[in-house]
C-alpha cells in the first residue's frame, strides 16, 4: 500500500503520496500562498466555468477572500455549447448559490447575438477554440473591468501552461504568445484587468483527483469541439513526454517563466502604445481589436 505520511492510503502522488485529507490541506495551502503572493486587497473576479479546475480555484479563492475581507465575484462566460456548457453552468449556479458567492454570467448569445454552436455551424470545427477563446477573453476582460475587479483569476494549471509552451514552440513564433490575446498579461493598460494564474504550478491530475474526491457531482462532460483542437493533440504529446521523462511539464513551465520578461519587452517594443479599438473602444495594438475583426469575418448577428 502506498501511504501518506499520516499512514492512510494515498489517493495521489503530488511530490509525495497524499491521502484525501492531506491532498486537500496541501492544495489549499499551496494555492493560498500563491494568492498571497499575487493579490492585494482589491476586488477580484474569478473566471469560472463549472469545470474541475476553476471550481477548485473558486472554492479556495472564496475561502481566502472571506478571511481577508476581499470582495470576490465569479464570472462565467456562457459560449452556448449544448450538452456541455449548459450542464457546467447549472452546476456552477448551484455551487455559488450554496456558498453565497456572487455570480455574473456573460453569454455569447447576448453579447454577439449568437451562440458558439450557431457560429460553428458555418465554420470549420478546428477553428472552434480560436473563435471561442478570442471572444471569451474579450468578454472576461470587459466584464471584469465593469465589475471593478483589479485582478482576474484564471484557472490554468501546470498542464495547460506546458501545452501552451509547446504549442508556441511548435508554431515557431514565441512572440505570438504575447499577441494571441495574451496582451492582458503583458501590457499594462487601465483597460486591461490583470490576469493571474494561482493554479499555474498545480498538475491537472491533482485537480482531477481533488474533484473526484470532493466534488463528485461535477459534470464530467468534455467540450464537443475539444478533440479537434490543436491543443488536444499537444496535450497527448506532453502527457507522453511526462511519462517518459517525469518532470517535463515543470521544466516547460520553468522555461516559459524564464523567457517571459524578455518576451514582454519585445512585445512592448513591437506593439508600442495601445490604442482604442475604433468600434468597441477596448484596448488593442491595432485599429480594430481581435474580437471585432473576428466578428466581421464571421458575420455574427450583432
Amino acid at each position: 500500500m502506498v501511504e501518506c505520511s499520516c499512514g492512510r492510503r494515498a489517493a495521489v502522488v503530488w511530490d509525495r503520496p497524499l491521502c484525501r485529507e492531506h491532498l486537500r490541506e496541501k492544495l489549499f495551502a499551496h494555492v493560498k500562498a500563491n494568492l498571497d503572493r499575487l493579490l492585494g486587497n482589491e476586488r477580484i473576479a474569478v473566471a469560472a466555468s463549472g469545470g474541475k479546475d476553476s471550481t477548485a480555484l473558486l472554492e479556495i479563492a472564496h475561502e481566502w477572500a472571506s478571511g481577508r475581507g476581499v470582495e470576490l465575484v465569479a464570472l462565467l462566460v456562457d459560449e452556448g455549447i449544448e450538452g456541455y456548457r449548459d450542464r457546467t453552468r447549472k452546476f456552477l449556479e448551484e455551487f455559488c448559490a450554496r456558498r453565497g458567492i456572487p455570480l455574473e454570467v456573460v453569454s455569447f448569445r447576448d453579447e454577439l447575438g449568437e451562440a458558439l454552436d450557431g457560429i460553428l455551424s458555418r465554420e470549420r470545427r478546428e477553428r472552434a477554440c480560436t473563435i471561442c477563446g478570442t471572444f471569451r477573453r474579450y468578454l472576461l476582460n470587459r466584464r471584469a473591468r465593469e465589475l471593478g475587479a483589479g485582478k482576474l483569476l484564471m484557472a490554468h494549471n501546470l498542464d495547460d501552461e506546458a501545452q501552451t509552451f509547446f504549442m508556441n514552440l511548435f508554431s515557431g513564433n514565441f512572440l505570438q504568445l504575447t499577441t494571441k490575446g495574451e496582451l492582458g498579461g503583458i501590457v499594462d493598460d487601465e483597460k486591461f484587468v490583470r490576469r493571474v494564474k494561482p493554479l499555474l504550478d498545480v498538475p491537472e491530475k491533482v485537480l482531477a483527483v481533488y474533484a473526484a474526491l470532493f466534488h463528485p457531482d461535477l459534470p464530467a462532460d468534455e467540450c464537443p469541439y475539444l478533440r479537434e483542437s490543436s491543443r488536444f493533440r499537444v496535450r497527448e504529446l506532453v502527457n507522453e513526454l511526462e511519462l517518459r521523462k517525469p518532470g517535463s511539464k515543470r521544466s516547460a513551465l520553468r522555461a516559459y517563466l524564464s523567457i517571459l520578461p524578455s518576451l514582454k519587452s519585445s512585445a512592448l517594443k513591437a506593439k508600442g502604445r495601445l490604442k482604442k479599438c475604433r468600434e468597441c473602444g477596448e484596448p488593442t495594438s491595432r485599429g480594430l481589436c481581435k474580437a471585432c475583426e473576428l466578428r466581421h469575418q464571421l458575420k455574427t448577428r450583432s
Binding site: V2, A10, V13, R20, K205
Partner: peptide
Amino acid sequence: PEEYICVLNGEVVT
C-alpha cells in the same frame, strides 16, 4: 496514468 485516475474497489488510489 497521466490521463486516468484509478478507483480500486470504490476508492481513489495511486
